[in-house]
Simulated scan of single mutants.
Amino acid sequence: MRTQLRGEARGERASTRRSPRRSPGRSRSFATALAALDAVAAAGAQVSVCVTDLDSGETVLAGDAHLVLPVAGIGVVPLLIEVAAQIDAGTLDPLQIIERSSVAPVTVGGLWHRLAAPALPVRDLAVLAAAASDAAAANALLERVGLETVRARVEEIGLVKTALIDGFRDERGPDDAPHVGLASTGELVTLFAGLVNAQVVSPAVSAQVSEWLSLNQDLALVAASTALDPFAHDDDRHGLLFVNKTGRGDGIRAEAGVIAGPRAGAAYALIVCFDDLSVAHRLRAHEAFRALGLDLMEYVY
Score class of each variant (00 low, 15 high):
L164D: 04
E8M: 12
R2E: 08
D53N: 12
G90M: 02
A280I: 13
L292I: 07
L141H: 06
S101K: 11
L95N: 02
G44N: 02
S225C: 01
V60C: 15
A232V: 05
A41Q: 07
A256E: 06
R2D: 10
A137M: 05
F289I: 09
E143P: 00
R114P: 02
E211T: 15
G25D: 10
T162G: 04
E155F: 09
V40F: 04
A126N: 09
W112L: 12
R17E: 13
G90W: 04
L182D: 11
G25Q: 12
N139G: 09
G57Q: 13
L182P: 03
I81T: 05
E12H: 05
V77N: 12
N139A: 10
H113N: 08
R263V: 01
E82I: 02
I74G: 00
S184N: 09
I259R: 02
G75F: 05
L296F: 03
A204C: 01
A85C: 03
E58C: 07
F289N: 08
R169E: 10
L79F: 04
A138S: 14
S101H: 07
A130V: 00
D93W: 12
S102D: 13
S206V: 12
V258E: 01
R21C: 01
P94N: 05
P178Y: 10
V300Y: 10
S102H: 03
R169Q: 14
R263S: 13
T162W: 14
Q46F: 01
D276C: 04
G293V: 03
H66G: 14
V150N: 09
A9T: 13
S101Q: 14
S102N: 06
G63M: 11
D250Q: 15
L296D: 00
L69T: 14
D166I: 00
S15P: 01
L270S: 00
M1N: 07
Y268C: 04
Q208H: 15
A119G: 01
D134W: 03
R253N: 10
V196D: 03
F289A: 11
S210G: 08
R253S: 05
I252G: 10
R282F: 07
R17Y: 12
V68P: 06
Y301C: 02
I271Q: 04
A14T: 11
A84P: 00
T91G: 01
T149D: 11
W112D: 01
G57E: 08
A135T: 08
S202R: 05
Q4V: 04
R28E: 13
E171R: 15
E12T: 05
V47K: 05
A62P: 02
D295M: 12
V77G: 06
G247N: 12
E187Y: 14
P203R: 14
V47P: 00
V189C: 10
A41P: 01
G167M: 05
A35G: 06
H66I: 03
E156H: 14
G181E: 09
G194S: 14
G265S: 00
E298C: 03
S27K: 12
P262H: 15
L61I: 01
E12G: 08
R21I: 05
Q4T: 12
Q208R: 15
E82F: 08
A288P: 08
P178H: 13
L296H: 09
E143T: 06
A193Q: 15
G186W: 13
T16E: 09
L111R: 15
